[in-house]
Design a protein around this nucleic acid. Structure first.
Lengths: 354, 354
DNA sequence: TTCCCTCTTGAAATCGTTTTTATCCGCCGC
DNA sequence: GCGGCGGATAAAAACGATTTCAAGAGGGAA
């Protein structure tokens, strides 16, 4: 393809300056064995012709690829359903975190954890990247175990359970579920549903922990029958809300895992003729900021998803620079955004219904 | 890093089989100069030790990178707003379209068209990828012009206006806007709003064309004052709907560019106290299938966004194989999904209000 | 028998770097 | 005056593939 005739190489610089390619290389890498005068001359020449090292050449020689691989999960999608996850924001954040470094981002689509492990293997064994970033961490995650075992640098969005030490960024789901549940309990709700993701996911367990703790704290029994796990689709949220509202002793409050399921829950309750806001309260993680426009607007926990991505990128760079993974761990507590009343207005034990 | 001691190279195979590395290379590339017997022996050995060619080595020698770069647009995001675009689905589609080829996908985040051009330049001049995929095409798109000029292979999601020949996949926005508008006109609406994206975008113009044609066809004046361009955020949809509903002669129908703006329009109308479904009708592009859960559920044009991605990937592969871009052009007409009534019930000229 | 041609394989150059090792030169110490 | 040393640069060997060109074997024709 039409390049500028041929782009300059280290050899071009060698001919320009009269120094050997070895010296050029060392100068550009700021090696201490080269004199300042030589470095200056070489850099000047490099700047003049706009030299940029060929990643291919560097890559072959050093074994590094200057690539960071991201495993992007997509719902297995038999008939696409919105899952409310704006992965583009995460990617954007990661890219921002990588900015200024020579690392670029390659994205590998994975449909489930098994495929994720296979892809991680490919990346490691095929030297397709120098580091890995992924999410959707399971309580016991084969990818984390594998990568720890082979010593390949990676950062995860989420933590698995177990005592492995690795770099990660996570949201305090335990706390968020606790806070949401406690809020609804304080509002008079007793039959509170936990609309949860796939129970194999680590943060699904965190949420159950927080949910449970909120009840235990005030000495109330945990409504085990109202904990439902599924995917993140709107459809699941709707089905879950409908089935839990049809129980003899129905749920009045819903702690949803994200906005997509919350939207589904709203739709389900509406379909059953409930007056949301009076009959039920819905609380969600807020990662795309759409719940403000729902009817009614939802109380959410705001998740700065792009910032998390930025952290992931930054952590990976530091990990690649050799930093100890134990120092690269961060837990973010999301901010509560109160929008809709969380009071139970229908059957509150301590206040009349208004 | 702990690789399997060292991964096998062409040299390993050479020692195993006794053939020279030249013969090995030719055999694996199915060159006709090698005998079938030799090929079989070499392939057998390669399979046995699980040999896979090093992309780095290939890359350096051939100049190809076996990478496809995708320019992913992200909203400049001063205070993140949902834009209703599930770019993850597009990426997933592209990856699916690339499957089976040695090409992998790298993602470059771009904030606007100018940055897009700069990134395209980097990719081309730095040989960072063999082909490019991007979207958000403007009526006059500097990226398209540049890439055509330098002859770099690319495929776009969307078409620019002009007579350049290049590979692309697009949605028939003209038709969709026409169909949506005609539907509302048939339902009795006369004051129909067009909630449009950034007017520099090529498909914004297509939508205006279709919108205009629908009015012209039945001899009605085009409500120019109801055409509003903005970003794809829910906030813009809400603001647009509110301002257009407060006019002396307010809009009763809304042709929204996507689900995010449509959600905003619904929220805006609700805030103003309108009974949506009676007072107004909203129609949207449907690319994430969430509108089924809105209140009321919206009539939409279903857009198989992942399929479009798959086409993009497939087209780029064919383009890289040397196919003529003129044969790599596709226009998809989205399917109408009728959900909510598009009849005007408040002030219909030919039927009473119920 | 000799020569040439074809068919298969091998040797070597190449892509653009980095890194190890060698060379050159001046200077210090003895 | 000479050996050695250190400082600056050059030469050469990788990294792992592809590709050009040479070489060797075998066969057919004169």
């Amino acid at each position: 393809m039409a390049d500028h005739p041929t782009r300059p190489t280290i050899k071009t610089l060698s001919e320009m300056t009269g120094f050997s390619i070895a010296t050029i290389s060392k100068a550009l890498n700021d090696s201490p064995v080269v004199t300042q005068a030589t470095k200056a001359a070489i850099r000047q020449a490099a700047g003049q012709i706009g030299y940029a090292a060929s990643l291919r050449g560097m890559s072959l020689r050093t074994g590094r690829t200057y690539q960071v691989a991201v495993l992007m999960p997509v719902a297995s999608a038999s008939g696409f359903e919105w899952d409310g996850v704006d992965y583009a924001q995460i990617l954007s954040g990661i890219a921002a975190g990588l900015e200024g470094s020579p690392y670029r981002m390659s994205v590998h689509v994975v449909r489930d954890a098994a495929e994720g492990l296979a892809t991680a293997r490919q990346v490691v064994e095929g030297h397709l990247a120098d580091g890995l970033i992924f999410s959707g961490i399971q309580a016991q995650d084969p990818r984390v175990e594998y990568l720890c075992a082979v010593g390949f640098p990676f950062v995860t969005l989420g933590r698995c359970r177990g005592d492995l030490t690795y770099a990660h960024v996570d949201v305090d789901s335990d706390w968020a579920a606790w806070a949401a549940t406690a809020r609804l309990i304080a509002g008079g709700h007793r039959r509170i549903a936990l609309i949860n993701p796939d129970p194999r996911l680590s943060y699904a367990l965190d949420r159950i922990d927080g949910f449970t703790r909120a009840f235990a704290q005030v000495g109330l029994p945990v409504p085990q029958d109202l904990i439902l796990g599924g995917d993140l689709s709107t459809r699941f949220g709707k089905e879950a809300a409908m089935s839990l509202s049809r129980l003899p002793d129905p749920a009045t409050g819903f702690v949803c895992v994200n906005e997509s399921t919350a939207l589904g829950a709203l739709a389900g309750l509406r379909d059953l003729g409930f007056d949301i806001g009076r009959a039920a309260s819905v609380i969600a993680y807020d990662d795309i900021n759409a719940s403000a426009y729902f009817a009614p607007p939802l109380t959410t926990f705001y998740l700065p998803i792009e910032d998390l991505g930025r952290q992931l990128g930054g952590f990976l760079l530091r990990r690649l620079a050799g930093e100890d993974p134990a120092t690269l761990q961060q837990l973010t507590r999301p901010d509560l955004v109160a929008r809709q009343s969380d009071r139970l207005e229908r059957v509150s034990p301590w206040e009349g219904n208004t």
